[in-house]
Design a protein around this nucleic acid. Structure first.
Lengths: 132, 132
DNA sequence: TTCGTTGCGTAACGCTATAACGTCGGATAT
DNA sequence: ATATCCGACGTTATAGCGTTACGCAACGAA
């Protein structure tokens, strides 16, 4: 319930663009959408994205080189999050599963592997697109 | 125990490069390693990679834009495979976990989401690098 | 003040992937 | 045989993603 992070102007604009979007955006798409607000170069976007990732306010979707606003920005108990990415409409659903996390860390521990970040991305077709 | 797929010359060379490597390679690294064997353009590599992915002989690591030879090329019962990627040494371990797969498909089914491909990549530090 | 740190702006560059051509050679059918 | 189709190939160019390197401005701590 506090100002968890003081965002700079650029960071706020990038987060705003992602929140306003109805799906994931690439860095260059964000750049285009913010050009009339003064953005000129990719780096301006990437620097803001890096911070927002640090703060846990957004996520990066590795398999499509895009970014989304976090669906649960208030709770930053972000363990390993999973994403269901529709290849038809581009919509993304964010969820987490304790069992999955548990099994993956178990498997990591077996190997003496120390995880830092876990990527779980399910590509497929969402309910809406299947119905259509 | 049969010639499961008839590979073309290019496909064999690309697969050879990946098998010979001690870790994942980017498409452009493959290109460089095959230049003296006649490769000149990225597309030659990407076309071969596409086929090898189709055949299940290699995997793509989405989070590092690289490719590895499949660790179990003979059995193509590739469900969802997971990768532990060491950020220090670049080594990759490939494994699969039935429980993880089961939970993820359960979560997908709940949402009416029909999965086509699942990406699971754990970034971190491997046992060897932790010991060092 | 001086010095580090952090964010910002710009330009240039490098890496990743695909589009759009045209060519060649093998398989098949008539 | 020859016409046709199809899959792989080669080349050039281009699109899309991400970083390096530089310098400047603002702010707070010593």
């Amino acid at each position: 319930m506090s100002a968890q992070h003081d965002l700079t102007k650029n960071q706020e604009m990038v987060l705003g663009a992602l929140s306003a979007a109805d799906g994931p955006l690439s860095a260059y798409t964000i750049l285009d959408r913010l050009r009339d607000r003064g953005f000129r170069a990719p780096l301006q976007v990437y620097r803001a994205l890096d911070k927002l990732l640090d703060y846990g306010l957004i996520h990066r979707l590795e398999s499509i080189n895009s970014f989304v606003a976090c669906a649960h920005p208030q709770c930053h108990g972000h363990g390993s999050i999973a994403f269901a990415i529709c290849e038809k409409c581009g919509q993304v659903e964010e969820f987490s599963d304790a069992m999955v996390q548990q099994h993956l860390s178990e498997r990591s521990r077996e190997r003496g592997f120390k995880p830092s970040k876990t990527v779980i991305e399910i590509r497929g077709t969402c309910a809406a697109c299947l119905a259509a």
